[in-house]
């Protein structure tokens, strides 16, 4: 059936939970594009035979109802396949983007599932957002932080991975595995998201991001 392959592509994403992404289906995309080109060839043949007849399109359509309807169907199939392919690529891009907003470790772990162009897109989006968050070129605040309404100004955290000395705006912390620290919430959030530390209190929102 026409257009069935492209629907399979969409289903692949639809059947996947929002924070996951199936591997980029190169093969199927190629097949859909082949299908589009086949439709296009058939359509061009029909257009050529119409032009050869020397009649205008309405007249030709009256005389050759079968060819005329084939022409319409081929055209509709191209549009449909194009739309589905665009949706496939766009939806994947949306998910790659949303990872940037939620968890940096997950953004890395998804890499093997992406195509080369998608990795490029991920990096470019990263740069774009960083630029918008920076002072001068943007708003001067890291918008990816602070995603939940703040309660306490400080947070106790436990270190999950050795990361040596870390210099933060509020001071220097020596983050050795399993030690506990109290640090400003704002600064802790970045570390939590990167999976270096975990929040000790159940702050109902600042849990570990990467599990």
């Amino acid at each position: 059936m026409f257009g069935k392959r492209a629907v399979e592509l969409i289903n692949e994403i639809a059947n996947c939970t929002p924070e996951n992404l199936p591997a980029y289906n190169d093969e199927l995309v190629r097949l859909v594009i082949e299908e589009v080109n086949e439709h296009y060839n058939q359509m061009s043949d029909l257009v050529r035979s119409m032009n050869r007849s020397g009649q205008d399109s309405a007249e030709w359509g009256m005389e050759h109802p079968e060819e005329a309807s084939a022409l319409v169907v081929h055209h509709a199939c191209i549009l449909r396949n194009k739309r589905l392919l665009m949706t496939y690529v766009k939806e994947r891009a949306e998910r790659i983007k949303s990872l940037k907003w939620s968890s940096r470790t997950a953004a890395m772990s998804i890499r093997p599932q992406l195509s080369a162009t998608e990795v490029e897109f991920q990096q470019a989006y990263d740069r774009l957002l960083t630029k918008y968050c920076r002072k001068g070129t943007g708003v001067g605040m890291d918008l990816t932080l602070d995603t939940t309404p703040p309660s306490d100004p400080e947070l106790s955290v436990r270190v999950r991975k050795d990361c040596g000395e870390v210099v933060l705006p509020s001071g220097t912390f020596f983050l050795k595995k399993n030690t506990c620290h109290i640090m400003p919430r704002e600064e802790a959030e970045g570390l939590i998201r990167d999976g270096y530390v975990e929040a000790l209190e159940h702050d109902n929102c600042l849990l570990r991001w990467d599990t």
Binding site: V36, M86, V89, K90, A93
Partner: peptide
């Protein structure tokens, strides 16, 4: 960015 991404992946292969 998005336009280019879609172009390289889909549109460039379209007839």
């Amino acid at each position: 960015l998005l336009g280019q991404h879609i172009s390289t992946n889909v549109l460039s292969a379209m007839p």
